[in-house]
Every structure is written in structure tokens, then in C-alpha cells.
Nucleic acid binder design. Structure first.
Lengths: 346, 346
DNA sequence: TTTTAACACGAAAACGTTTTCGAAACATTC
DNA sequence: GAATGTTTCGAAAACGTTTTCGTGTTAAAA
């Protein structure tokens, strides 16, 4: 078990100075061909590779970016990571992953852990708890210390930084308009409470679509669920909520749900209640998930292009890191969503 | 925008030496109460935090572990990461993620990128291409340079290191025995070609179960699929393969599939061919996925406890990192799989 | 008063690089 | 032979820490 070889060891072995070795390996003109050959051969033989930590310290640049997300066992977020990793790797960066687990404290801890030199910049999607508490001091402090942040998906106006978001509003509006166009008269909305920004925007898109087509807003058609409850482990509760929605207004013939689980469960409940999909009820979800594709019937959804979001976020961050002309201008990139039509709509 | 404050700056500001500042902050007895107070107050005011990179260089320890996996948009692997991140964080480590994308070259590149000081140890699951090529030199070199590796799930005997695996063989055997117990007479196997170790073991489990119950092995009941094809983007092809399996032997009444997609598609094809599940055909898959739970009917599966694998792998690695008494003994931890019975079995 | 002990602090090395600058050694020009 | 130029290399600083060791100052003991 031989330890990694360093410049110092090579220097000692070949009886030259450390500087000479360093220069020889970087093909400096200061060094004679002879010495270069000798040093390079030796380095190759011992498989010398410069120590990244030493380089990071010297250059004050780690070539590593940190991504902090609420959850990783989640199609959307894992696709974002894939996008981030893809362009990060292409451009010579590593990716450190931190999970906030939807907790404010863990978000802060994770950021503190990374902000002290470990990384050059952050890519972040806010935890639910942070959105509720509306406490963003840790982000602003980090930014003030000169570390750039790019936020995606769950963003917030109070933080001044680059952002990448999907057009939740437009996506929802288009989806609902599609249902209207398909002759749905009573379109239900299954959404979350308003503090999660994306849920709010999607709700607004629903409202806008109704307004644009002169449809009355019927409050009994709107189901607002508390997404602090993990319905994934509590499917029965979710089914009950949705079932009472169906019960309360029999004439529902369209459903727009702000995520995959709600949409899927709605389909399941509808089927159980002997509605035919898409003949009696059409359903559209909002997601980048895997369930929609494999459901029976397969679910039409608004796709968010998660991987593309990750790619853009990473590109934005690295661009900022490599253009030292630190102009304090921030941009918000909007990714167009896309309605993927499957069997749950006509 | 103030840059991060360093010991040197504090020292200058308070007109003491760097060493004094360092010691004061670490509450050394060498320093007088007065100076300690002064220094600590100042440090707190300016929110001083030691620079991680400098610490890493000094201590020759990064407190970071690298995990290299074939794919991240995958329920199993993202759960493993969650497990790794969980215990890593608990024990003060960060996690760098590298994706091999099932490619040998990317695996090597990723390892090279991290092995030069960026991390203290690796957690790895082999890419398909590496398994095919059977070229493991990069692992052995890394190990030889004194960097510990823990492998999980897709492991291989040729590499001497700690390992965490699920009992694929037992899990498959139990699943098939369950089907036999449920009075299935003709149990089909849908599996992959043999080079992926886990696929091979699961196939062996199937064979063993048959043998134990004196059932003849009927080769027309075994479908070996080429998993270099991404059937996720090619569902029709997969359905066709499975349909011909049904066609070739009409009396199939049980199916064991080595992953979620195969099992799910088999259910879909069976339903289309007017088999009733679980009455005519019972199905069991192998997975930690999310589809099984939400399928209709929901799919019985062999659960792999992915998160637990991640936790164990991280614990194993960190234990090795922190017990410098580098005894060259490697252990293989086997995680018991668990048959989760849902609607696709009686 | 001298010796010894305790206390408080600073200088310097080390981790592994890169880079600036100075300086030998040698060659060229006048 | 002196002045100048070129080639080749090494010393040292810097990045931000921690830690060992030495030292000056003061208090206690002889």
C-alpha cells in the first residue's frame, strides 16, 4: 500500500527542487527538455496526480458545487440532480449533495457545513418548512459572503439570486384549458395549501383558465390538502378526502391535480366509484414522475423538464463562478412546461 | 460583500499572533481568560468559521465520501443515497455524488476525479459495462493507494473490499416458493442476461425453489431479456417479448420477474390477454420501486431495503476511516430481503 | 537576592500546490 | 576581456489551518 506521491517526493528522488518538478510537469519553457523528460517519466511511472485539496487551497476555488434539496427519493429532484451532475462534470466540477428533508434546521446545517470553503456555489430548492417560516437569513448571509446561489423550482422573491423555474402558472392554465377544450364542464382542482409557491401558482393558473373561458368558480370543486401530511404513507386518508370531493359535487367531469400522487389517487377513486376515464372524467396531473406513464389508464401530465432545470441551474452557477466580473445582475430562467397527453384525457 | 474572515485577519485586527487566535478559539489553557474572551467575541462578531479546505489539507482528511452509482433517477439508487447521506451527515461527513451512467469510462473518470484528495473513501455500485468488461483495475489501484472502498448491490468477487448486498438468491427463492405455496404450477421467470450479478443470483434462486419442490425446469418458461436495451423508452418491445412468452406456453399461472418494470409490464400484458390477477396468474417482482405500490392491482415484491443498504455502507466506510488500525479484513454484510405481499398474489 | 516554576504568547513548520523573482552558469557580442 | 543576453533552476511566499517548541515575563520559593 503505497501512499500517493507528491511533488516533494519526486523532487527528492530526482534531486531537483519542488519548483522544478512543478514546472516540468506543466511543461514550462523555463525547464530544459532533459529535465522535463526525466521528471515527466518519473511522474508517469508513479502515477502522480496533483492533490485537489492543495490546489483548492492555493486557488481558493474548489471546483465543487453544492446542491441542497428537500428530498432525493423523488423523481423530480433526482432528475434535477442528474442534470446538474451532467453539466457540472462536463465543465470540470464535482457535486456535493445535501438533503434538507423539508426541514429548516437541516437546511441551515447543511449550508453551514458547506459554506466554509467546501464549495464554490450553491444550487438550492427550498424546504417546505423554510417556505412556511419565511426565514431566509441563511441565504442572504451566504450571498453576502460572496458565494453565488442559484435557486430552482421552489423559489422566493425575497432572495436575490439567479433562478430557474418552470412556468407553473402557464402550465396549469394550459392543462385546464385543455380540459375545457375537451368539453369538461365542471373541472375540479386538487391542490395544496398556499404557502408552497408552486402550488399557489398552479392554483392561479387553474383560476385564470376558468376566467378566460367565462366559467364560474365553484368553491366546492376545489380541494386544498395539507401537504405536511405525507399521503404517500397514508393513502387511505388521501382517498377519503378525494372521495368526499366526488360526493360533494356529482357532476365533476374533469380533474386537474397539482401533483402526481393526487392525480393518480383521484383516478383510482374515480374508477372505484365507477366513473370511466376518460369518458366520464378526464384527469391531468402536474409532475415529472414515473407513475403517470405506467398507470392504467396512463395519466396525462404537465411535464416540468426537471433534468433541463438542473442543467440550466448548473450552467447559470458555473457561468457566474467563471465570470469574475461580478456584475450584480440576476436572471430568472423560465422553462416551458409541456402537456403530455396520455390515456386519461381524450 | 465581505469575504470570509480568516485567522490572520483576526490576529492583525487584535494585534496578536495567528497561533494565539487559533488557540484562543479552541479554548487552549495556554491562553489567558482575557485574550480568549476578546478573541472569541471578535470571532463571533465576524462569524468566523474555520476554512474546511485548509483543515482538510492540514489533517489529510476531507471528511467527505464519494458515492458512484450507475444512475440516480432510480428509486433504488436514490434510496441508497438517502441512507448514505443520513449516516454521513450524522457523523460529520459530506457526500459527493458521481454518476457512471452505466459506462465504464465515466466510472473511471469519476473515480480519477475524486481519488486525488477530494474524498476519504468510496461507496460504489458497479456499472453494467464494467460488469461486462470485467475490468476492475481502477478499483484495485484505488484500494492500493490506501483509499477504502465499500461496494453495494452490484459487487464482484475480484475486488477485495467491504460489501453490502441483499440476499438476492434467498429473496428470489422465497418469492418463488411463495408462488408454489399458492398453488402455482407453471411459474415463468422474466430475467436479464447473466452478466449482471444480481440478475444471475435471482435466477438461481428461482431454479433452487423449483428444485426444492421437485418441479421440472421448463426452459420455455424462462425469458432472458437484454438489459442493455432501455425498455423504459421502449415499452412496446418489452410487451412484445412478454406477450410471446405467454403465447408460447398457455398454462402460465405464476410470474417471477427480477425487477419492477418487467413485473409491471407482465401484469399489463396479462390483463390485456384477459388473465385475471391474482386469480389466473400471480405476479411477484423484485424491487424497491414506487410503481409496485401504485399499480392496479398493486404488485407484490421482494423489497431490498435500499436505504438500509446505504446506511450500512456508509457506516462501514466511516468505521474503516476512523479506525486507523488498518487491519486488512473485509466483511460482507447481507441485508435480508422481505416479501411485501400486495394484490398481485393471493 | 537568586533560583525555580508557572503563565502567556509568538515563531515556525507542516499539509501540497503554483508562481514570482533572483541568481547562477554559460554563451554571445563588441 | 568586459559587457550583455540566454538558459536553467531554486528559494520563498502564498493559500488557512494546527501544533510544537522556545522565550520572555511574572510570581513563588529558597
Amino acid at each position: 500500500m503505497k501512499r500517493k506521491v507528491t511533488l516533494k517526493q519526486i523532487a527528492k528522488e530526482l534531486d531537483v527542487s519542488i519548483s522544478t518538478v512543478s514546472k516540468a510537469l506543466r511543461n514550462s519553457v523555463e525547464i530544459s527538455e532533459d529535465t522535463k523528460q526525466k521528471v515527466q517519466a518519473f511522474a508517469k511511472l508513479y502515477n502522480y496526480k496533483p492533490n485537489n485539496i492543495a490546489l483548492s487551497l492555493k486557488n481558493r476555488k474548489t471546483n465543487t458545487i453544492g446542491i441542497i434539496i428537500p428530498e432525493i427519493v423523488h423523481h423530480f429532484f433526482s432528475k434535477v440532480i442528474r442534470g446538474v451532475e451532467l453539466v457540472a462534470n462536463q465543465r470540470g466540477y464535482n457535486v456535493i449533495v445535501g438533503l434538507s428533508n423539508e426541514s429548516f434546521d437541516k437546511e441551515v446545517i447543511n449550508m453551514d457545513m458547506l459554506a466554509n470553503g467546501s464549495i464554490d456555489g450553491f444550487i438550492i430548492s427550498l424546504s417546505k418548512e423554510t417556505l412556511q417560516l419565511q426565514d431566509y437569513h441563511h441565504f442572504n448571509e451566504t450571498i453576502n459572503q460572496g458565494m453565488p446561489i442559484v435557486m430552482f423550482d421552489r423559489v422566493v422573491n425575497e432572495i436575490q439570486c439567479d433562478k430557474v423555474i418552470v412556468d407553473d402558472f402557464e402550465g396549469a392554465k394550459n392543462a385546464v384549458e385543455k380540459l375545457i377544450q375537451n368539453n369538461c364542464e365542471n373541472i375540479a382542482l386538487i391542490t395544496t395549501k398556499d404557502y408552497v409557491s408552486v402550488g399557489r401558482l398552479r392554483t392561479q393558473g387553474y383560476l385564470e383558465a376558468l376566467k378566460n373561458h367565462n366559467k364560474d368558480l365553484k368553491s366546492e370543486l376545489i380541494l386544498k390538502l395539507d401537504d405536511n401530511i405525507d399521503y404517500e404513507d397514508n393513502l387511505d386518508a388521501l382517498e377519503n378526502e378525494i372521495e368526499s370531493l366526488f360526493k360533494s359535487s356529482k357532476e365533476i367531469d374533469g380533474i386537474f391535480a397539482v401533483n402526481e400522487l393526487y392525480a393518480l389517487t383521484a383516478m383510482r377513486v374515480a374508477t372505484r366509484l365507477n366513473y370511466k376515464i376518460p369518458d366520464d372524467i378526464q384527469v391531468i396531473g402536474f409532475t415529472d414522475g414515473v407513475l403517470s406513464k405506467h398507470a392504467t389508464p396512463s395519466l396525462s401530465t404537465v411535464s416540468q423538464h426537471a433534468q433541463l432545470m438542473g442543467e440550466k441551474a448548473a450552467a447559470l452557477l458555473i457561468d457566474k463562478l467563471e465570470n469574475d466580473e461580478d456584475e450584480e445582475s440576476f436572471q430568472t430562467q423560465i422553462i416551458a412546461s409541456e402537456l403530455v397527453e396520455r390515456e386519461s384525457t381524450m
